[in-house]
Amino acid sequence: MADTLHRSPVLRHREDAFARLPEGLEIVAEPDVALADLRVPEGAVASATGVVGVALPLEPNTWVARPGGQVVWLGPDEWLVSDADERPEALEAALRAAVAPHDGAAVDVSAQRTAVRLRGRHARALLATGCALDLHPSVFGAGRSAQTTLGLVGVVLLALDDRGEDYRILVRPSFAGYLADWLLDAAVEFEPPGPAAAL
């Protein structure tokens, strides 16, 4: 349950600016959810399947949906498990119980990242102004993820559709304000021509 995390939404002061974005762009600060960093040694990956609900993605830079959230590949033995319905400590405990006997580990990192949803037909072009990766849906379609930099910020970027119009950006809360300001600034070039809108 997202409301089990009592944290001030770090982007609440940007919501008015988000509402004034040009047509074709939409930014939503998503509710905080439980996040756990899961480490499982190669060979014991299947031990987590029961709790996670799906097989851990083994291909680098991919993510898969799971009941209540998603599993993101972070490294050859590391995944980020999210859950919107579970308390962070319960998610951590359940994962740890499953993988600890196999020398795995699970740590609650719910406070480490917050999620920003970026949607709209200009979404890919907006990201491309600050991200060096090829984001074309043919190589970065639904199910792809990347840990990279956007602007000057380290992010985990998730592609949610195959049209380049829906992304989730996981960012450290202390950088979220900067990232939001950067996105809003980058969005200016998608304003329709005409008298400059007040920012």
């Binding site: 680098p60 830079n61 490294g75 050859p76 060096a132 990766l133 990347a146 840990q147 990279t148 930099t149």
Partner: peptide, 17 residues
């Protein structure tokens, strides 16, 4: 910028390394 090929992530910009 030079790209460096991470054995897992593939080619990425040098500043990521």
């Amino acid at each position: 910028m030079q790209l460096i090929r991470c054995p897992w992530c593939g080619p990425r910009e040098e500043v990521e390394f």
